[in-house]
Nucleic acid binder design. Structure first.
Lengths: 336, 336
DNA sequence: CTGAAAGCGCTTACAG
DNA sequence: CTGAAAGCGCTTACAG
């Protein structure tokens, strides 16, 4: 345990500690020869500034809090890893907090972070946004919100994905393949924006999604997608492509297609949205629209760092564009 | 941003700050009436001690570093989440570092953690154990190592799983179902201990694993398991059960069984080891042996906290017992 | 360009 | 049981 302090360095270099401090902080007020001497002393002693003390003196801890509902969900795990990477690149360390979606726990965690005098924080929406936002503004820390959903509270910095464009891209892809008889599986409230985007893409080719071809899933899950797909596909065997508003639903659609003897993509094309890890491993691998967590991480970091440097809030919504990922579950309609 | 300090509280309560400090730290030297007055002032002002300042004064930051190779791997993600939970329960916050398996990066991260004066750290083995151990002892911080593999450097605190017992449990299960013609897929160097355990269990029923029935996989992956299983099962069609030394391999075995027209578990039983998330979602769901990350997290936390309190190292290996998880991929051999 | 002083917010002996 | 002092390791004006 090296307990070497700035005082030791000063002693060894034959100067006072504020001169050492000046050298460390690269203040251009130190004569080259003195600097050189101090630097040698630092190297010889293996000195490295105590961040706690510095934090207390400057009010800057170079530490940011990361608040996520859980890390067991791969989406958040990836996001946290990407955030760690981008924040690390800016010199910030990370204090990780998980809330399990519990507002009480979140409050406790935030209290502690505040007592640690972190510089700011990034939190991933876990559905309790409004609650957290109140709490956060109360704490007075700069923060940015990574919103996975479409609701975006105003007056704060939020980074989100353009869900409408996601729907647009998926539908555009199916449309460009030549599909005209397209069904939608999903129609869950949080996916409405995606559906609208899909409508827009199809409208460009004068294709209208018939209401009867929209299968409302009871929940965004594989079974949910399965049931909805079974019902839509048996009622509308003429459908050649299904757009699922989430990969989980799409996985269920794949299952339904197998049960109905519809080869994918030979007889039926299936596209999802999200690009979760499983999308890559389904049979066949799923064509989908990816939300790039890394970009979300970078944008969030950038926003926070800028706010930290400038010292003022920059409220507003940054909407990230998703990417189409074409895999093997989509093809032109049969007989084209 | 509440900037209320101990001084403000003292002022309001009409005492000096060290009396406030005494109240906060529950030192039994304060008269009830003074305490009451101080506590009211604290409540009224919403005072909460600055952990940075306290850390500087006491040398205790109540912060521990968590060093893992990645969080994108669900194993580590779960472990980190469980560690966060158990450490939080002990009052510790977490500084998260990912190394990506890069020793250089690990060194950098550890340097920073040291400068933050964290109290101790827990790190998950990423294969560079020995490297890290040197670095860590050099840093002089109390730490415990979560070793997922079997190699356990001595002289330090390490928590690991009993891999031999894992193999034993899997083999015992197959044995007790009545299987005698058992093949093994795996045989990778890191899985040797598991294989030994399996041998032990089978030996108790006088069953010997014929060397020709051991399929050596080129790597611990689904394709690796598939290839090894194809070769063993075609050469030894009499085999009624396969023990894979890892779930990934077992998933490959399942695939091979499907290709060979062997129904699982009707015609062939398959057991894995690890209980990764996918094991629950295969067809059929995989019988396996689970390594309880939560227990690993708890044991590690306990060890570290004890070391922190006692102020001295407690080197040694804590070997955690795994659990058999029976799902649908195993059954008695056909015709029994 | 360098040094003496005060302060960040807390705690820890140590007198009274 | 309470208060005055010194210190944790750093930084920030401010004289020289």
């Amino acid at each position: 345990m090296s307990v070497v302090t700035i005082k030791d360095v000063a002693l060894r270099a034959g100067v006072t500690k504020q001169t050492v401090s000046n050298v460390i902080n690269k203040r251009p007020v130190v004569s080259p020869v003195t600097r050189e001497r101090v630097e040698r002393a630092i190297a010889e002693l293996g000195y490295t500034p105590n961040l706690l003390a510095r934090g207390l003196a400057t009010g800057q801890t170079m530490m940011v809090g990361l608040v996520v509902p859980t890390i067991a969900d791969p989406f958040y795990a990836e996001l946290v890893e990407d955030l760690e990477r981008s924040l690390d690149a800016e010199g910030y360390s990370i204090a990780l907090c998980t809330t399990y979606g519990d507002p009480e726990r979140a409050r406790g965690q935030l209290e502690i972070l505040k007592r640690r005098y972190i510089d700011g924080l990034i939190l991933a929406d876990d559905g309790n946004v409004s609650h957290h936002v109140d709490l956060l503004t109360e704490l007075g820390l700069p923060f940015v919100l990574c919103a996975s959903e479409t609701e975006t509270p105003s007056g704060i910095s939020v980074v989100t994905f353009d869900h409408g464009h996601a729907g647009y891209l998926a539908a555009q892809h199916l449309r460009d393949l030549g599909h005209r008889d397209i069904a939608v599986v999903g129609d869950l409230p949080p996916h409405r924006v995606r559906l609208e985007g899909a409508r827009r893409a199809l409208a460009e080719a004068s294709i209208v999604i018939e209401p009867s071809r929209i299968g409302t899933a009871r929940e965004s899950s594989q079974p949910g997608g399965f049931e909805a797909a079974m019902s839509v596909l048996t009622e509308h065997p003429e459908v050649t492509a299904v757009l699922a508003t989430h990969d989980l639903l799409a996985l269920g659609v794949l299952q339904a297609a197998a049960d109905l003897g519809r080869a994918v993509p030979g007889s039926l094309s299936v596209a999802g949205i999200d690009d979760m890890a499983e999308a890559d491993q389904s049979h066949p691998p799923l064509t989908t629209v990816a939300f790039a967590k890394r970009r979300m991480a970078q944008a969030s970091t950038e926003l926070l760092v800028r706010a930290l440097r400038s010292g003022r809030r920059e409220p507003g919504v940054t909407s990230l564009s998703p990417d189409l990922v074409v895999r093997a579950s989509t093809a032109p309609p049969p007989g084209s």
